[in-house]
C-alpha cells in the first residue's frame, strides 16, 4: 500500500509572552490509501495544530510533509492551490465554517470555480454533491443560519468532497453535533471513503467513535504521539499510562 500522506518529524512551537509552547513536538506518521486514521488526545495536546500544519494553514517550524510522494512543506502559494485539490478539511463548528453572507451552494461551488470550472457546471456538480450528502437541491439557496448544525456539517462534507480529494481531515467534525447526528455524519463519511477510496484523518476525543470507524489510532499527548495501533489493541491493552487514563475517563 502506498502512503497518501507522510509526515516526518513535524514541529511547531508558539510564542506566548516569553515562554515557548511546543504544540507539536516532532511527530511522524503516515496514512495509507483508503485508510482511516484516528488521532485522539485531550484538548491542547496538538491535534488541531497538526491538522493546520498538514493543510498548511499554519507554517511548520521543522519537518516535512509529503502528499502522494510530493513534498508540500515548502511549496509556494500558487502550488499550494493545487495541493488543495487533494487535501480537504472539515471543521469543528459547522456554522462557523461557512461564510454567513453566502448561500451554501455558492460556498460548495467555490473550490470548483477556483479550479477553472464553468459556473453552470459547478452549480450542477454542487447540487450533485449536496444530494450525495442527503441535502435536497433547495439547500443550495439557503444561508448557513437557516439550516441546522447537522445539515450544515453535511454541506461542509459536500464542499470537501466536491473536488474528490485523496485525503480528508476531519478536525473534531462531529463534536458539535448531538449523538444521533454524529452517527449519521460518520456513516456518510464512511460511505464516501469507501466509494472514492479516500483516506481520512479523523481527529477526535471520543474513543468509542474512533473504535467504530478507524483502521488505526494514534494517541497524542503533549505534542507527541505516545501510542499507535488498531483501536481494539489500544483500548484493550493500552501500554502507556496516559492512554489508560484516557480510556478510564470515558463515561
Amino acid at each position: 500500500m502506498s502512503a497518501v500522506l507522510e509526515v516526518r518529524n513535524l514541529k511547531k512551537a508558539y510564542q506566548k509572552g516569553k515562554t515557548e509552547i511546543v504544540a507539536v513536538d516532532g511527530i511522524s506518521f503516515e496514512i495509507n490509501k483508503g485508510e482511516c486514521l484516528g488521532l485522539v488526545g485531550e484538548s491542547g495536546c496538538g491535534k488541531s495544530t497538526t491538522a493546520k500544519l498538514i493543510t498548511r494553514l499554519t507554517a511548520a517550524d521543522e519537518g516535512e510533509i509529503f502528499l502522494n510522494g510530493k513534498e508540500i512543506t515548502h511549496v509556494n502559494t500558487k502550488e499550494l492551490r493545487d495541493v488543495y485539490k487533494d487535501i480537504q478539511m472539515i471543521f469543528q463548528m459547522p456554522l462557523d465554517s461557512f461564510n454567513p453572507r453566502i448561500r451554501l451552494g455558492e460556498s460548495v461551488m467555490e473550490s470548483m470555480i477556483n479550479q477553472g470550472m464553468k459556473r453552470r457546471q459547478a452549480k450542477a456538480r454542487a447540487q450533485e454533491c449536496l444530494a450525495n450528502c442527503g441535502l435536497s437541491s433547495d439547500f443550495a439557496d439557503r444561508y448557513p443560519h437557516q439550516v441546522s448544525g447537522g445539515e450544515c456539517q453535511r454541506a461542509s462534507i459536500a464542499r470537501a468532497i466536491a473536488n474528490k480529494p485523496s485525503l480528508l481531515i476531519c478536525d473534531e467534525a462531529t463534536s458539535a453535533l448531538d449523538v444521533t447526528i454524529q452517527s449519521q455524519i460518520l456513516k456518510l463519511l464512511g460511505q464516501f471513503q469507501q466509494k472514492m477510496g479516500m483516506s481520512c484523518l479523523l481527529i477526535c476525543h471520543d474513543l468509542a467513535l474512533v473504535q467504530e470507524v478507524c483502521d488505526r489510532v494514534m494517541v497524542m499527548f503533549n505534542g507527541r504521539i505516545v501510542e499507535e495501533g488498531t483501536p481494539d489493541e489500544i483500548i484493550m491493552n493500552p501500554r502507556e499510562e496516559y492512554t489508560k487514563r484516557l480510556i478510564d475517563s470515558v463515561l
Binding site: L57, M89, D96, S97, I102
Partner: peptide
C-alpha cells in the same frame, strides 16, 4: 474564522478572500 480557512482550502486567492469573504462580513 473557520470559513476563511475553508476559503483558503478551496484554493481562493487572497484578493478573492478579501473581497468575497472578509469585506462583506
Amino acid at each position: 474564522m473557520p470559513y476563511i480557512s475553508a476559503a483558503k482550502l478551496s484554493g481562493s486567492k487572497p484578493a478573492k478572500i478579501i473581497f468575497k469573504h472578509l469585506l462583506p462580513n
